[in-house]
Each structure stands twice: as C-alpha cells, then as structure tokens.
C-alpha cells in the first residue's frame, strides 16, 4: 500500500517529468508532448515507486525492466531517468542533438537506463516477452513492464506478442496501455476504431485491470494487483488524457508531435507552476 508521502513523491516526480517534457520540447521544434504527458503519471509510478532499479548500476541483473514500446514518448522516460540520477538533468537540454545521448526515440546503446530500442511501433511487447522468458530461465524475480499506446494496438505484432505472453504464461510481464484515445491524426474511434480494448486483452488470456491513468494511487494499486496474478500476464488499461497537464494541449492531436511558440512554451510552464502551487496549498 502506498502511504501519503509516497504518493506525494510520485506526484512530484510526475510533475517534474511534465515540466521537463516542455523544456525538452522547447520553442519552435517538434516534440511529442501529447503522448509523453499522458504517460507521465504511470512512468513516475514505475520509476519512483514500483520498479527495483539502481541508477548507479543500470545493468544490475536483478533489476525490473521498463520498455517504452510507444517510443515517441521517450521524453517522459528521459525525464524520469534524469530525475532518478541515471544521467545529469542538464543532459535533457540536448535532446535530439546531432549524434547525442538522447535520441528522438529510445536507444539503449546511447542512453543509460534505456532497455530497448523502439520507435517503429508494435515491437516493444515482443521484446518484453523475450525479456520475461530470459528472466524466468534465470530464476530471477524481476518483472518486465511494457508501455504501449492505444494507437499502437493497430500494429498486428502487438497481438502476436499478446498470444505469446499468454502461451508462455508470463506472469512476470505487465503491460501498461496508455489510452489517451488519440492517434497522430485524430481520435482513434474516428480514424481507425480498434475498441474495445479490455475485452480484447481478456480474450487473449490476459488479466486486465482498468484504471484512471492519472490517479497515482490507482496506478500503484493496479501494479500491486499485477503481482498477485499467477500463470498469465497483466495488462493495465489506463485511461489518460493526451497532453495531460498542459491545458491547451489536452485532448488534441495537434500536440501529438507539436511545435510550441514562445508564448505557448511560457504558457505551458506557467500552467504547470500554477498547478504545483494549487496542489501545495490545497493538497
């Protein structure tokens, strides 16, 4: 169970992640704000509370693994890794720098703490299946967490991996479905309707837990519930808001990979600061 201090720390990390997402996006350059912000609370719960990991020893064999299958949300993961101390937060200023450490999509050879390369959608869950099989062969208790996007579910390979995980009874594998309802070109329901999700994952043999993906206590409870299941994988279907925390970017495809003007950049940071003041005074 989460105590109120722990919850506050996770919420603080989530806030920090969002602030960094805006800073990394900067002015006049494209950045995947929408899908990074929708994932922020879950990423914070994983790195800030749930996962066994050691920023000083990124290759610790007994660590839990996190794979960002929706690789375009790398900004959320970079922010979390920096906040945890995998590398200095100052590095975040150099996202997408020529041949730099922080690429547009996750690259395990370049960035400490990144566990898999992603960016071509649909592959992360399969990588997670391989990791879960390997960890089980080594009798390690470590878990594998894979974050997927709801738009990503149109990729057929996701369902190949879903079948494989159930076939191999991988109860050390947990999926986190960031259901922000919006793909790059618009609402999933309008563009390419892949609903319903919960029934699909259940039919594929997974335990499914449906939550509000911005309710940190609910995210943590779902992660604990996933520990209890035996003989099958768990999918946490997290309902989220694309662009969450950045009011003008919420629930719109425009900031899937959006460019901030100077005014909007300032606005986003002001909104975040305001939110933090509101929470500090009333929370």
């Amino acid at each position: 169970m989460l105590d109120s201090n722990q919850q506050a720390r996770i919420e603080d990390l989530a806030w920090k992640i969002r602030y960094h997402i805006i800073e990394m996006t900067g002015v006049g350059k494209a950045g995947h704000i929408g899908g990074s912000c929708s994932a922020a609370d879950i990423v914070a719960a994983l790195y800030g509370w749930k996962m066994k990991h050691d920023p000083q020893n990124p290759h610790w064999p007994e660590r839990d693994r996190f794979v960002m299958s929706k690789g375009h949300a790398a900004l959320a993961q970079y922010a979390a890794l920096a906040a945890c101390g995998y590398f200095p937060e100052a590095e975040l200023r150099h996202v997408k720098k020529l041949n730099g450490m922080l690429q547009g999509h996750p690259d395990l050879r370049r960035t400490p703490g990144i566990e898999a390369n992603s960016g071509s959608l649909g592959q992360g869950l399969s990588i997670g299946v391989g990791m879960a099989l390997g960890l089980r062969l080594d009798h390690l208790e470590s878990k594998v967490f894979v974050m997927l996007g709801d738009g990503e579910l149109a990729e057929g390979q996701v369902w190949e991996a879903a079948m494989a995980a159930a076939n191999f009874k991988l109860d050390n594998l947990v999926g986190l479905l960031d259901c922000n309802r919006i793909q790059a070109t618009g609402e999933i329901a309008q563009r390419f309707n892949t609903y319903p999700f919960t029934e699909k994952w259940q039919a594929f043999g997974w335990q499914v837990i449906e939550i509000d993906g911005h309710d940190v206590a609910a995210v943590c409870a779902a992660l604990e519930q996933a520990d209890q299941v035996s003989g099958r994988p768990t999918m946490i279907v997290a309902h989220t808001v694309k662009g969450k925390g950045i009011p003008f970017a919420e629930n719109t495809a425009a900031y899937h990979n959006g460019i901030l003007t100077e005014d909007l950049y300032r606005q986003a940071l002001v909104d975040l600061e305001q939110k933090r003041r509101d929470e500090t005074c009333c929370g």
């Binding site: 399969s126 990588i127 391989g130 990791m131 099989l133 390997g134």
Partner: peptide
C-alpha cells in the same frame, strides 16, 4: 523481437 528481448 522476442529474440531481441532474450538477448537483452
């Protein structure tokens, strides 16, 4: 891709 995960 599962093979990739196993190698990791």
């Amino acid at each position: 891709a599962t093979a990739a995960g196993l190698s990791l």
